[in-house]
Amino acid sequence: MSRRRLGQLEAEVLAVLAGAGGFLSPQEICDRLDGEPAYTTINTILFRLLDKQMVERTKHGRAYTYRLTADESGLAAERMFGHLRLAHDPSAVLSQFVHGLSPHEEAALRALLEDPGGET
């Protein structure tokens, strides 16, 4: 596996924490990532995330354990995303999770979500 960019690794750490739900030690996070990134790298990323208030930590014995910030309002979201058009319709270089829906698609999706067969 090639060396990952820090931004990608940061997202992977977040995904691991989101999947786990509770507190994880940096070593546990390392173990759950592919390609066994260095412990110090993970610590650096956790510090950055702590700085952005996206994770919170608690002392567990002598080491810290981390989890996703439980209270969403506590997330450091003071940076505004002012680019109206960019959020709606980013061009090819930025991948967006979903694009807008047509009214027809919206109806189809609502039907899918309300379908009792598809309930989890």
Partner: peptide, 18 residues
Amino acid sequence: LGTGVVADVRPFALAVPG
């Protein structure tokens, strides 16, 4: 803007390459 959470009521996620 940097990575992480930005304040916006519209629900969206973007992957910024590079």
